[in-house]
């Protein structure tokens, strides 16, 4: 059976959820071979094996943390060459994080392959994998194939379920020779993002967002309280972020994160195209807004026209009561 390379997104050996989703998709196409780089890479093996990785190629060189993007491209290229030499390579799947997309694009160019970014589904087909993309603020859905070389496809979080599918997960050292460009951009400092204890925005099953109607950073506490009652991530519209009420890392929309949770709750968000672009593929959409004419109500499965300062705390209380 052909093999599929899966680029592993991990933090010090802790595998992030989108990588496990990639393994689910990879198994539709062939045998998943994972590539884990940097400090803690070998520690990813057990989790990856549990979810279907037949092999885990690792390299813990310091270059992956010390320089931007290119060392990882070099490593992935080495993995492509190693797997191709030993058998047949059907595709390379990469999570759609900002960095991983850059890695995927440079890899594709180097190996003479087409690249597809931000797929929301990948299916096997006679002529190679077919990727589904959601475009123009999710108003269109396209089916795209790579017509030259080994398909390199980046996949958005929440595009597939995480499935247990135990496999060998044999760890092998990946031998990487760094290119002349590898050390071009030095990472001179790194400040890890402070953990809020909430799920990561793009990975969360439920997202609770606040917009202009929240009217002040201090009021975001009621959005956070609702999120915590549901175990959800907190999002914010561009208006709220531009006003300085909530960090840019939580922005949902065209210039922020694109989310696709099971449930999206928009509070005090009018639903401008900019915002819709980042949340329109959510499975169930709920909104609370004072303005009955707000465009967000065109998208909702359930909407409440009312003051969010009344409705949201009441909802939070009700959820807490019901959850006991």
């Amino acid at each position: 059976m052909a093999e599929v390379l899966v680029y592993v997104d991990h933090v010090d050996g802790a595998v992030r959820k989108p990588t496990l989703e990639l393994l689910t998709l990879a198994r539709r196409i062939g045998d998943p071979v994972a590539v884990a780089l940097g400090a803690g890479a070998a520690n990813t093996a057990a989790t990856l094996a549990e979810h279907g990785a037949v092999k885990v190629l690792t390299d813990e060189a310091a270059e992956y943390a010390d320089y931007l993007v290119v060392p990882k491209v070099d490593a992935l290229q080495a993995a492509v060459e190693a797997v191709s030499a030993a058998g047949s390579l059907a595709a390379v799947l990469v999570p759609s994080s900002a960095e991983a997309k850059e890695i995927a694009a440079r890899l594709a160019l180097r190996i003479g392959s087409g690249v597809i970014t931000d797929a929301v589904d990948v299916e096997a087909d006679d002529k190679g994998p077919v990727a589904t993309q959601s475009v123009f603020a999710a108003s269109y859905s396209t089916k795209t194939r790579v017509s030259k070389g080994t398909p390199v496809i980046t996949v958005k979080p929440n595009s597939a379920p995480v499935e247990a599918a135990p496999a060998a997960g044999t760890v092998e050292a990946l031998s990487v020779t760094f290119s002349a460009q590898a050390t071009g951009t030095k990472v001179t400092g790194r400040t890890p993002r402070e953990s809020t204890g909430r799920p990561e925005l793009t990975e969360a099953a439920i997202v609770v967002s606040g917009g202009r109607g929240v009217n002040g950073s201090e009021n975001f506490s009621i959005i956070e309280a609702l999120a915590d009652s549901l175990g959800a991530a907190v999002g914010a519209s561009r208006a709220a972020v531009d006003a300085g009420w909530y960090p840019h890392t939580n922005q949902v929309g065209q210039t922020g994160k694109s989310v696709s949770p099971q449930l999206y709750i928009a509070n005090g968000i009018s639903g401008a195209i900019q915002h819709r672009a980042g949340m329109q593929t959510s499975k169930t959409i709920v909104a609370v807004n004072k303005d009955a004419e707000a465009p967000i109500f065109d998208l909702v499965d359930y909407g409440v026209v009312g003051d969010l300062f009344e409705v949201v705390p009441q909802l939070t209380e009700e959820i807490k009561t019901r959850k006991g």
Binding site: A98, T185, G189, R190, R193, T202
Partner: peptide, 8 residues
């Protein structure tokens, strides 16, 4: 980035 802010 997603998990950290980097100086380049």
């Amino acid at each position: 980035g997603d998990t950290a802010s980097e100086q380049l």
